[in-house]
Nucleic acid binder design. Structure first.
Length: 411
RNA sequence: GGGGAAAUUCCCGAGUGGCCAAAGGGGGCAGACUGUAAAUCUGUUAGCAACGCUUUCGGUGGUUCGAAUCCACCUUUCCCCA
């Protein structure tokens, strides 16, 4: 191990929230290559910005010479983690979970190097699905105190709302995962989001009781705004890493729009820029802070979607917000020559481009002055857009202040 | 197993036979002010072939000229007792 201890790097960048044994963990990371694990439940077909923070942390660890195990929760996803959920999750089928796991796998590879066994991908379905119930509760269940579990923060809110036995078991499953990874790979460190704290403790306790070995746990800051809201979510849903679910342009825009107060934190947590630079950007005064946001958006988009997409998004942004011009990267809808020749009502156009979910909403937008076509505010509800409105077969519709959409006539 | 309570639009939550597409708040969207920020103020927030029509108050059926509101059954949840 050479260079700065990765523990200090993570700490400086603001990742670390809680640790089981701060000094021992730091020491361990400083002296040997440590095998550690982070679990991901594949409950959707793409990871989100929240997962991304964890992957970045994982990458920092790997770069420092440690060995990550990305544990896909093919088994635990069947149960559903009750942590932070106010209601019971809907159950996912085995098929969907497997599909999701495949999607997750590809996304890990963006930042984690799995070549030459430098990292391991596991799936807890491999051991959880074949567990024998009686054996499990005899061997594992004995080590868990229900009294203690009930006092865990993660169950408290659910005790008011109702918690099924199924979900109550989630903690045991995750604890068991850690034990299993210790046995298979000698893994003694589990990392995760701060909401995973009690689940992680379940694992470290279990290993100590069953194996008599000290295991460690550490949690990362959750990606929240300065107001305490979860980041990575928009009204339209989560910010996905999958470009078909959140286009690189929209992804870029999301980060371009973070609040002033959150820029520095995001730069530290979600990019690999040196901390000196992060601090410099974060302390830019007033309007200048926009520079920091541009860097943030560019860097994150580059990591997730590649430099080319990041550049395209950046150029599109400059063209649109700088006035005039357009770019390939703007979300685009194609219409046929016939449609263009015949003309399309502005209301239908808004629905067609998904800028408005319904015609009523489209009408409302226009009435409130929120629609601009080719730099002209739309005031008439019966405006018809036809081929004369297209320049070079293209036209730009702007919804509100910052949502741009391009319509192109297909060849 | 016994008893009680509840389910309302994106969320919370009012509404106990017509004045209900349903108060209020939150959130969202749009406008003004700005820096693609925050704060603040204003408007808006089921759909449609739109001065009217259609779907919506856990589900299914019923009573009624008329049901989110009454009745029956079902589903789910919570609370108390065991």
């Amino acid at each position: 191990m050479n260079g700065t201890n990765v523990f200090d790097i993570l700490k400086e960048r603001g990742f670390i929230q809680q640790t089981t044994h701060e000094e021992q963990i730091r020491e361990l990371l400083g002296k040997e290559s440590v095998t550690f694990y982070i679990g991901f439940d594949p409950t959707a077909d793409s990871m989100t910005a929240g997962h991304f923070l964890t992957i970045i942390a994982m990458a920092h660890m790997q770069r420092a010479g440690h060995k990550p195990i990305a544990l896909l929760g093919g088994g635990t996803a069947l149960i559903g983690d009750p942590t932070g959920k106010t209601d019971m999750r809907k159950m996912l089928t085995q098929e969907i979970i497997n599909h999701n796991a495949e999607c997750f796998k590809k996304q890990f590879e963006i930042l984690i190097d799995f070549d030459n066994h430098k990292a391991i991908m596991e799936n807890n379905a491999n051991w959880l699905l074949e567990l024998n119930y009686v054996n499990f509760i005899r061997d594992i269940g004995v080590h868990f105190s229900v009294n203690r579990m009930l006092t865990a923060e993660c169950f408290k809110s659910r005790l008011e709302k109702g918690l099924s036995f199924l979900e109550f078991n989630y903690m045991l499953m995750q604890g068991y995962d850690f034990l299993e990874l210790y046995k298979r790979y000698g893994c003694r460190l589990e990392l995760g989001g701060d909401d995973q704290w009690s689940n992680i403790l379940a694992g470290t306790d279990l290993i100590r009781r069953v194996e008599g070995v000290e295991a460690y746990g550490m949690t990362f800051t959750l990606l929240t705004t300065s107001e305490g809201k979860k980041m990575g979510k928009t009204e339209a849903g989560a910010v996905w890493l999958d470009p078909t679910k959140t286009t690189p342009y929209d992804f870029y825009q999301y980060w371009r729009n973070v609040a002033d107060a959150d820029v520095e934190k995001c730069l530290a947590l979600l990019t690999f820029l040196p901390m000196d630079e992060v601090r410099r950007l974060g302390s830019l005064p007033g309007e200048k802070i926009n520079e920091a946001k541009k860097v943030l958006a560019f860097e994150i988009t580059k990591i997730v979607h590649g430099e080319e997409e990041a550049l395209k998004s950046q150029q599109a942004t400059e063209a649109l917000f700088g006035g005039g011009g357009d770019s390939e990267a703007i979300p685009t809808t194609e219409i046929t020559k016939e449609q263009a020749a015949f003309g399309i009502n502005i209301i239908d156009m808004l629905v067609l481009t998904a800028l408005a979910p319904s015609k009523a909403e489209a009408r409302r937008l226009i009435t409130q002055g929120g629609v601009v076509v080719n730099d002209q505010k739309v005031t008439a509800l019966d405006l018809v857009i036809s081929d004369k409105d297209f320049a070079d077969s293209k036209l730009i519709i702007k919804k509100g202040k910052k949502t741009y959409h391009r319509v192109r006539i297909a060849e």
